[in-house]
Design a protein around this nucleic acid. Structure first.
Length: 306
DNA sequence: CTTATTTGACCAGT
DNA sequence: ACTGGTCAAATAAG
């Protein structure tokens, strides 16, 4: 068993334990109104972890390694066999825009644009078929028409930049119209505590070591509805970005060297009913993007610490 | 009222 | 000089 596989199993075990804690938390803190299936839902999440663990531990070495590499690969060039994964590893944000931005520029009143251009930044790229709510609270701070691009690029920073100094940012750009294709590039990592919007949960730090956190996206549309949050409080504050609808995603790319993020897909019907019997080893075949399935309903951020 | 978005200005890197 | 990333005033939304 490869190191990656071992690590994956370790993390899954930990995730499962954390989910159990979340279940306990939910059953205590939530009332029935609007969230009647909370326990059922979390139980399914637990099952997902259990199933994944089972798959990993029972499958052959080749398969598990492939899966693990999907998660942990930090080399952009190693994902050629996985076209939906686009990993970038450009290093760290140069010393930085943060500083130059933050430092209150002497007495000069207008220091707009006073920054250092982004360069060699730790980024994670995702390609989606529609704008996808990743669970974080973002605030748009700019939009720019990019050369040779048919659509403008939007710039977002974490809402908690000012109050918590969270440096996470992202850029979203529409690449194609038909079919719609969006590229989202994430820069930096969320250091804010309260960074999740209500459709996601974050296990309290006290339950995780090393600042690890597990994010869960309750995307089971068989038990929950998502019509602008009218039916379920867990979607109540999910907002749209750039006035465009969030729709199912077709592709996900991320930087495997950092933290895999799983996107919520409100129209994805398979995941919630994922079960071991139907998800036999064929699911793990190299031709099938099992993770894009799993990924659509579970949002794990910073699962990997380094 | 507070908070978020829009949009032109600004500036560093190329 | 051009381009892309950010700022912040103006504006919109809640």
């Amino acid at each position: 068993m490869s190191w990656n596989t071992k690590k994956a199993i370790e993390e899954l075990v930990r995730g499962k334990e954390l989910t159990k804690q979340l279940r306990d938390l939910l059953t205590k803190s939530l009332t029935d109104d609007g969230f009647v299936n909370s326990e059922d839902l979390v139980l399914k999440i637990c099952d997902t972890f259990a199933n994944t663990l089972s798959l990993l531990t029972n499958s052959n070495t080749t398969t598990t390694t492939a899966v693990a590499d999907y998660y942990y690969n930090d080399d952009l060039n190693d994902v050629s066999q996985k076209p939906t994964i686009n990993i970038t590893s450009d290093g760290r944000k140069s010393e930085d825009s943060g500083d130059s931005i933050k430092s209150p520029p002497s007495t000069h009143k207008d220091r707009r644009g006073s920054y250092k251009r982004r360069k060699c930044v730790d980024s994670r790229k995702k390609i989606t078929s529609a704008l996808v709510d990743d669970g974080y609270a973002w605030r748009k701070y700019g939009q720019k028409q990019i050369l040779h691009a048919s659509h403008p690029r939007s710039y977002f920073r974490c809402t908690h930049k000012t109050d918590q100094g969270c440096q996470a940012t992202k850029q979203v750009q529409k690449l194609e119209d038909d079919p719609p294709k969006y590229e989202t590039i994430y820069y930096g990592h969320h250091t804010c505590k309260n960074m999740l919007k209500s459709c996601h949960f974050m296990v309290d730090d006290s339950t995780c070591n090393n600042d690890s956190s597990i994010l869960l996206s309750f995307a089971n549309n068989s038990t929950l509805t998502n019509k602008q949050g009218h039916d379920n409080p867990f979607f109540s504050s999910v907002k749209q970005e750039s006035k465009e609808d969030y729709k199912p995603i077709s592709e996900i790319t991320y930087n495997g060297s950092s933290s895999p993020e799983y996107l919520w897909s409100p129209h994805h019907h398979q995941l919630s009913t994922f079960d071991l019997s139907s998800a036999d080893m064929t699911v793990l075949s190299p031709d099938h993007d099992v993770l894009s399935d799993v990924v659509d309903s579970v949002d794990l951020d910073d699962l990997l610490q380094f």
